[in-house]
C-alpha cells in the first residue's frame, strides 16, 4: 500500500482502528442496517430510498482503508440484503463488494473525516451502486427496470444528506467502542 503514500490530501493512517470493532459489533450493525432497510418504510412511509446498508458499506470502506476487509464486508452486507429480496443471490452482493473495494481504494487519497468529502463520495458511490445494480439486472438477469437518472440523482442526494449525520454517529460509536 505504500505506493499510495505520496498522494495529495494525505492523512494519517488509522491502523489501530481496524481492531477495535469486534466481529460481533460488526454483525450487529449490519443487522440493524438490514432491518432498517426492511422495516423502516413500514414505520415511516416514503423511506424506501434510504440505502442504509450501502451507507454502512461506504463508511466502512472509507474508514478502514483496507480493501480486503471492505470488499468482504460489502459482499456480506450485499448478500444479506439479497436474501430478503426475491431476486437471485449475488446481485447486491457484487454491487456492494465493488463499492466497498473502491471506497477503500479511494479513501487513501482523501480526507475522509471531512464532511464535504464524505458527502460527495457518498453521493458518487450511491449513484455508482444504483447504476451498477441496474446494469446487472439488465445484463445478467435480462430484466428491464426503467432507469430514472433524475430520481437516482435525487435519491443519491438524499442519501448523501443522511450519510453525513449517520457517519458522525458511527464515528461516535467507534470512540465509545475504543
Amino acid at each position: 500500500m505504500t505506493e499510495y503514500s505520496e498522494q495529495l490530501l494525505k492523512k494519517p493512517l488509522r491502523e489501530g482502528w481496524l481492531n477495535r470493532f469486534q466481529v460481533l459489533a460488526l454483525l450487529a450493525i449490519t443487522l440493524v442496517a438490514i432491518i432498517c432497510q426492511f422495516y423502516l418504510p413500514r414505520l415511516i412511509p416514503n423511506t424506501e430510498f434510504l440505502e442504509i446498508p450501502l451507507l454502512l458499506t461506504i463508511y466502512f470502506g472509507l474508514m478502514r482503508q483496507n480493501q480486503l476487509s471492505a470488499l468482504f464486508f460489502g459482499a456480506f452486507v450485499g448478500l444479506a440484503q439479497d436474501s430478503l429480496s426475491h431476486l437471485p443471490l449475488g446481485m447486491y452482493g457484487i454491487a456492494k463488494t465493488l463499492v466497498g473495494y473502491f471506497a477503500a481504494s479511494v479513501s487513501m487519497r482523501f480526507d475522509v473525516d471531512n464532511v464535504l468529502v464524505r458527502f460527495t463520495l457518498t453521493f458518487f458511490f450511491f449513484f455508482f451502486h444504483q447504476f451498477f445494480y441496474w446494469m446487472m439486472r439488465r445484463a445478467l438477469l435480462g430484466q428491464v427496470v426503467p432507469l430514472d437518472p433524475q430520481k437516482i440523482l435525487l435519491q443519491a442526494l438524499l442519501n448523501a444528506v443522511v450519510a453525513v449525520p449517520l457517519f458522525m454517529i458511527l464515528d461516535r460509536m467507534k470512540l465509545s467502542g475504543s
Partner: peptide, 15 residues
C-alpha cells in the same frame, strides 16, 4: 402482520 418490505426497491413484495 406485515413486518417488512422486500429489499429490492422495485419489487412488490412484503414479508
Amino acid at each position: 402482520r406485515i413486518i417488512g418490505n422486500g429489499t429490492a426497491s422495485s419489487a412488490q413484495v412484503v414479508f
